[in-house]
């Protein structure tokens, strides 16, 4: 039995249970936050990307035992109230989503990426983002990342 306390989307939360359980399943099944998606379970595809202490992390591969004292942001907590994050706005503007399943992870990855790369080149995107999209929406993802960067710079 492991007990940890942390924050999810700004709210205090705690967990007592199997410390081996990945954060992904706590979010989806205990916290009712279904936006974070299960894709591979081994940290390869990025569908489950969230922010832990502001950094992108693949929640399928982070055990609950490692989360004490952390602050977690999920796709549901990315917007500032009603005001969407620039990356979410860019995703809608560029009409990125086809099936949409991987896109919460893509958006969370891009939001973290842009903090370190506020003015990304194509090479930066190529090496900094490796989330899988089975619809092949990469062309629009690239455009949306660039649009979000512009909007963040202008904000």
């Amino acid at each position: 039995m492991t007990t940890v306390t942390f924050k999810i989307n700004g709210k205090a939360a705690s967990f007592s249970g199997d410390g081996d359980m990945p954060l992904l399943w706590h979010l989806r099944e205990d916290a009712g936050l279904k936006g974070t998606k299960f894709g591979c379970g081994i940290g390869q595809c990025g569908a489950c990307t969230v922010h832990i202490n502001g950094e992108a992390a693949r929640s399928c591969s982070v055990p609950m035992a490692a989360l004490d004292g952390t602050s977690i942001t999920t796709i549901e907590g990315l917007a500032d109230g009603e005001r969407l994050h620039a990356v979410q706005e860019a995703w809608i503007k560029e009409d990125v989503a086809q099936c949409g399943y991987c896109q919460a992870g893509q958006i969370m990855a891009a939001a973290a990426f842009l903090k370190d790369n506020p003015n990304p080149t194509d090479d930066d995107i190529d090496s900094g983002i490796d989330n899988l999209c089975r619809c092949g929406s990469y062309y629009r993802i690239r455009k949306a990342i660039k649009l979000a960067a512009q909007n963040l710079a202008g904000a």
Binding site: L33, K34, I75, E76, W91, A104
Partner: peptide
């Protein structure tokens, strides 16, 4: 544009 775009971008179930 995708009519589910907002739902997808905000993680709706």
């Amino acid at each position: 544009r995708n009519v589910h775009a907002l739902a997808i971008a905000t993680g709706q179930p």
